[in-house]
Design a protein around this nucleic acid. Sequence first.
RNA 1: GGCCCCGUGGUCAAGAGGUUAAGACAUCGCCCUUUCACGGCGGAGACAUGGGUUCGAUUCCCGUCGGGGUCACCA
Length: 551
Amino acid sequence: MDYKNLANLIFPEAKEINYYEEKYPERNLKEGAIVTRIAPSPTGFIHIGGLYQGLIAKKLAKQTDGVFFIRIEDTDQKRQVENGTAEIINSLNKFGLNPDEGMINETESKGNYGPYKQSMRKEIYQSYAKYLIEQGKAYPCFCSPEEIEEIRQKQEAAKIRPGYYGVWAKCRNLSIEEMAKKIEAGEKYIIRFKSPGREDRKIKHHDLIKGNVDFPENDQDIVIIKADGLPTYHFAHAIDDHLMRTTHVIRGDEWLSSVPLHLQLFHELGFKAPKYAHIAPIMKNDNGNKRKLSKRKDPEAAVAYYVEMGIPKEAVNEYLLNIANSNFENWRRANKDASIDEFELQINKMSVSGALFDMVKLLDVGKTVISKFTAEEVYNQALEWAEIYDKDLAEVLKKDKEYALKVFGIERGNKKPRKDIAKWSDVRENIEYMYDEMFNSKKQEYNYQVISDKESIEKILKLYIEKYFNEDDDKQTWFDKIKELAGEMGYAKEVKEFKANPEKYKAHVGDVSTVLRVALTGRTNTPDMYEIMQILGKDRIRNRFQKADRD
RNA sequence: GGCCCCGUGGUCAAGAGGUUAAGACAUCGCCCUUUCACGGCGGAGACAUGGGUUCGAUUCCCGUCGGGGUCACCA
């Protein structure tokens, strides 16, 4: 009995690894092209950190004319969620992270290096596991979970390093005959990697982000094939990224400490190891302590949250890029209208430690991004959002697109566009006074500020609509008339004059404007009132004035 | 606890053995202005700490403290 017999006993059906090596040849890409991937587990929704990692991976691939693909890591059957794969792909697509290869829905994929779902690659992993067994680099382990637990407790009690290694690795020294006998007797087993490492030796690793890091070698005989026949992450990573010809593994830095193991695996398998870039996680301040954004505790960890809030994908991407490379902001200032695709991400400029997530800053980016949209773009995206999250608003927008475009066009497209919409869920609040159905369905607070007596307000509104308002006036004429109105009422026509002689006047033209604004919109802050009045038209202005509370 | 990583304003962060230690968000003030937002100008605000090395250290080294990650038949 030798290793080859043992391997055959365990995996009688497995193909020779040469079959796969030939089936998935080296990619024919131009010099310097990078192959990256995003490899999520289909646990339902995608984490903002996953999006961040995907964005970086995709950018790196795209800026070198490389390949970015998606692989679904579903080797943990217990954590499966129905339609989890499709949901992740949808989320990714919503943020523009469409891969070149990989799963395109729950079951189908595109690309020549598939299958791109690990549960569909079982026989591949088994072939390589068999290959390792044949070489004496892997072995079946018959220890039960209880035995493993027992070992761990002994180690803990003795205050020594826990794990399945060295003298603790009971099954590693079983003879081939003993192993075969147990298998033939039907004993349950899993497959472990026979680590050649020694804890007292160091390995050097150069990480693209973290720089040079030294670790003790791995000496743990980790499991590579679980009881259900599927591989563990570590083994699948080595096999898949080799066979899919990944050149750069971009992943969260929770994997950094597994690098010694992974390098060892690649080496023993006879593979060339990829380059690694370990990204610092996005953190959150929790009562003074930093911690990773958690799916369970933090709603903002799930990308669905941003979709629901209606933060445009451009804003999320820009914010993330900003965390990734802080020179992005400078680039953006110098290239105001450029697509973010033109920004060249430098992996070595990424921060080695995790940034606190800053919602305020994200929203600021959102304001700037939306301020640059055309009215048409605002309309389309706001409507798309409203169709799902604010049906009434969607109805209103759809009823008269031309009108909506006028509303969204107020103070837009000029040098200093307004920045009052940070996310689509702000839209209603920002435009509801332009729509009678929304305006009237809500109790308005009329706060006239300086000029607050009923008679004066009454008089201003009456004079304005009957004597001064003319739909055909240009903006200057329009405003001159408000000044005249102020004069007629005995208020200062110029603010400067008022400030110079505060004792002479009770109020000034600005206060008159405020009265008009409040009566018209129910609020003290609005964009340019001339444009608002132009859009509303005389009848509606009169109507609003009539309905407005005077006190 | 072992191993690994990190420590510049409230946040994200540039940066170098000698600098007035950038910039952005937030904050405060002023200006612009019919309001608000925008924009412009200005203010306040930082090198965790103790030892070395050095003419000089926030920068290099060591310790301390603090933070984070990881130690599964989860990824």
